[in-house]
Amino acid sequence: MVGEALSTAGLALAVVAVMIGGTYVAAVLDVLFTRLTMRVAVRPLAAAALPLRRAAQLALQRRTLTERPDAGTWALAPAVLAALAAVSLAVVPLTGTLIPVEADTGIVVFAAAMALVVVAVYLQGWSPNSPLSLVAAYRFVAEGLSYEIPFAVVLIGTALPARSLALVPIVTSQEHLWNVIRQPLGLPVYLITVLALSFWGPLALPEGQDVAGGTSLELSGVPRLLWRVAQLNVLVAVSAMGAAVFLGGWLGPWLPGGVWMALKTLFLLALLVASRQFFARVRTESFVVVAWTVLTPLALVDVFLAGIQAMVAAR
């Protein structure tokens, strides 16, 4: 009983540690990529300290209020986003043995947690009772309703060869061939949809400059800091999941499983974070059209190809 509680606490701590570490790494990567794009000198030490310095500065600010905001939901929005990210990271097996949450329906839990991201972002935009922020909130609803289907469907595709919705079988089913090669459409669709999900880079529609920051427009001080952290948490969670279901998770030669998993997660995280420097922000309407008429059919094709392959492999 006690031992069980202790091991649960230990696993929860592991998730928290991975989350904090990953978030910090994502913030530093963003600084590095930004400075590289600006073509200014990159000082690694300064870049490593910069996120902490910025965070400290925000922590010292007095929070601002708006006219009659919905204070409860406003306070809840970043917390909900972070909690969802934490739960979705928790179902990802970190190594063959270090599995924080072993759920039979791992990818469904992940998809469910990520489906609720829409709630957090919508509340963040709705709550301050500010016009541009409201526009941003509704943009994200449009975005969210569009990415959710292809996002869930490509995840289902990875479950086919494993014959299970749990993540450990999904990773072990990639023993001979990673899903990124076996299902070539999967990872690209996944990456696009998770960019939308974490409202980052070209798909940062609710945080665009045209709405002066949108959902974070009225944020200052600690709430702003928490919102930024929660957003990076989501990026970390989706990178880890992508590494597990498409890049074979902890599988790999020579190095220990945990290192492989960390490297693969880092690779996807860097890819996602860097996208901000290469792609301009997309129009909401264009994204909706493409998500429904291109991404969703592609995701379905991906599932069927994966199914046929799995069937042939099983014969």
Binding site: D70, D104, A112, A115, L116, V119, G144
Partner: peptide
């Protein structure tokens, strides 16, 4: 497990749609 989680998954999107539609049609939505 599956039914429970899928309920949460579906309701996340559904309740947002409900919120959005209720705001659209109710006077004094907030």
């Amino acid at each position: 497990e599956f039914l429970g989680v899928i309920l949460i998954l579906m309701m996340g999107g559904e309740m947002t749609i409900m919120a959005v539609f209720m705001v659209m049609f109710m006077m004094n939505p907030a």
